[in-house]
Structures are given as structure tokens and as C-alpha cells.
Design a protein around this nucleic acid. Structure first.
Length: 219
DNA sequence: CCCCAGGCCGCGC
DNA sequence: GCGCGGCATGGG
């Protein structure tokens, strides 16, 4: 495999230069200041809500939770299940997700657990798979786990010819990048942005900022 | 009408 | 370990 540490870092630099800082994970800091809630709980809740769902729809659900004072573990646990389902309905799979929000809120309380919980233990919680676990560890826990998603897989397969299982890709990224939490956060966000702008299912190779490092530009 | 979106789970093989 | 169907709303 030709792709090396420097190639991967170059991709990061190119994306950062093209799109600027993404500042993921988006959280309403002011809301949490005013309500005395922990913004890390919004990250966990958002991570569950966004499973196979557009962020646009998730935002509607989050707004509903805010309006009802339920954008926290305590808020989720104090909201009756049928009410919770109603609030998060715009995010899809709302019956599944309402139950999972209850389970996750209970198992991750207090939210400081995100600093110490083991990845395997996180994965044993209903509703938390590999990607959601790594989102929680990285964005809520500030721990160096690289998040892989469908976009990430598509991009590295196209530009480097690299493919593999979730765990294989995660260790590929982590092995080819310095262990830097802020880098991991920003890089993942940039990859998602790039997948939406250029590296779509039907790629728009014209004007792509990664043409110079891609093994198969303009198909 | 179609397809997709910041996946996960349970099942069969 | 891998592939599949079910889960559901809202946009393009």
C-alpha cells in the first residue's frame, strides 16, 4: 500500500484548507449554561438520534427535546416513553431510539463515565454500535478513537484503495496519524463534509480538492 | 416515483 | 466472521 502517514496528513491539510474548521460536535453551549446541564449529554443523545438519519432531521428532534427540558440524561429518564417517542419522531426509528435513549442515559449516568468507560463496555449497551461508541469516546470523552462511517470508508477506498472492516479501518487511521484528539475530531468532520460536497456516491471529481492525491480522479 | 441520510440489532449461514 | 431485513422520518 502506497498510502503512508504523510499522505494521510496531506489529505487532512488539503481538506482543512478547502473547507476550514468544522468544529464538530455541534452543541448548544448557551442552552446548557442556562439549564445547568452537561453538553456531553447532548453529544451522546445526538449520537443515538443521528444513526442512519440526516442531521437535519436530528436537529428537529433536539429542538423538541430542548423545548421540553429533556435534552439531558435526567430529562430523558423523566420523560414518559410515549412522550419521548413523540418528541424525537422527526429523527426516524423513533420507537427504537426512544427506548435506546432511556437505556443509554441510565447506563452512562453520571456522564463523567465517558472519560473512563471501556470501549467494550460501551459496545455492550443496547443501541451503541462501533461508530456510536467511538463518537461518544472521541467527542464526549475527548479520547483518541478515530470514528469510521460510510463516508470515511468510501473516501479512503477511492483515494487510497484502502478497504476493510470497521476495526481494520479504525486501526489504519489510528496507526497512520499522530494520537491527537483534536486532529481526530476535525479530520472525521472534514471527511464527512468532503463526502457530501464531492465524494458522493456519484462523485463530482471536477474541482475536487483531493485530485492530486487520489488514485482514480475523474471517473 | 425513486434514493438516501453522521447505524444497530437479531438472525442465518 | 459476513450478509440480510427491519426499523421511520423528511429532503432532493
Amino acid at each position: 500500500m502506497r498510502s503512508s502517514r504523510s499522505d494521510l496528513l496531506e489529505v487532512y491539510e488539503l481538506l482543512l484548507r478547502s473547507y476550514g474548521e468544522q468544529n464538530w460536535w455541534p452543541v448548544d453551549e448557551e442552552y446548557h449554561r442556562e439549564h445547568g446541564t452537561d453538553p456531553r449529554e447532548e453529544i451522546v443523545i445526538g449520537a443515538v438520534l443521528t444513526q442512519n438519519t440526516s442531521w437535519r432531521n436530528v436537529k428537529k428532534a433536539i429542538e423538541n427535546l430542548k423545548r421540553e427540558g429533556a435534552l439531558s440524561f435526567e430529562g430523558v429518564l423523566n420523560t414518559p416513553l410515549d412522550k419521548l417517542e413523540e418528541l424525537i419522531r422527526p429523527s426516524g426509528y423513533y420507537r427504537q431510539k426512544a427506548r435506546r435513549l432511556k437505556v443509554v442515559s441510565e447506563k452512562l449516568s453520571p456522564v463523567s463515565k465517558v472519560e473512563s468507560i471501556g470501549r467494550e463496555e460501551l459496545l455492550s449497551i443496547e443501541g451503541i454500535g462501533r461508530e456510536t461508541a467511538d463518537v461518544i469516546l472521541l467527542y464526549a470523552g475527548g479520547r483518541p478513537y478515530f470514528v469510521i462511517d460510510a463516508y470515511t470508508k468510501r473516501i479512503v477506498e477511492r483515494i487510497f484503495g484502502v478497504r476493510g472492516s470497521y476495526e481494520e479501518l479504525r486501526s489504519w487511521f489510528e496507526g497512520n496519524l499522530p494520537k491527537d484528539v483534536e486532529l481526530y475530531k476535525e479530520f472525521h468532520a472534514l471527511l464527512d463534509e468532503h463526502a457530501k460536497r464531492f465524494c458522493r456516491k456519484d462523485p463530482l471529481c471536477e474541482g475536487c480538492p483531493l485530485t492530486q492525491v487520489c488514485i482514480q480522479p475523474s471517473r
